[in-house]
Amino acid sequence: MNDSQRAKLAMLQTTLRVLDEHADLYATNKALGKARQELAALVADLDPTAERQQRATTPAKPGAVKKETKEKLAERAAAVAAALLALADELNDIRLHTDSDYTERQLRRQPDADLLRITHNLHQRATDHAQALAEQGVTAQELSDLQAAIQAFQQEQTTPRTRMADGKARKQEINADLREASALLRNRIDKFLIRYQRPEPQFHTAYQSARQVVNTAARPAAKTTPAPVG
Rank of each mutant, 00 (worst) to 15 (best):
G167H: 00
T103I: 07
Q147E: 11
Q147M: 08
E156D: 03
Q157K: 10
A113S: 11
A113P: 04
L116S: 11
A152M: 08
Q131L: 13
R161C: 00
H123K: 15
R105N: 11
L107I: 14
L146F: 03
Y102E: 05
I118N: 00
T159M: 04
E104Y: 09
L146W: 05
L122T: 11
R117M: 13
A152E: 13
L122G: 04
Q110A: 12
Q154Y: 01
P111V: 12
F153G: 02
Q157V: 07
E142N: 09
Q154E: 05
R161M: 02
R170A: 07
K168Q: 11
Q106G: 15
A134Y: 04
L116I: 04
S144F: 10
L133V: 12
R161Q: 02
T159W: 00
R105S: 15
E135V: 14
A165V: 01
R108N: 14
T162W: 00
L133F: 06
A152D: 13
L107Y: 05
T158D: 07
P111I: 12
A149P: 02
R161V: 04
G137H: 10
Q106L: 12
Q157P: 02
A152C: 08
D145L: 12
R117H: 11
A134M: 06
T158V: 10
V138E: 01
Q154C: 02
L146T: 02
H129K: 11
E104R: 15
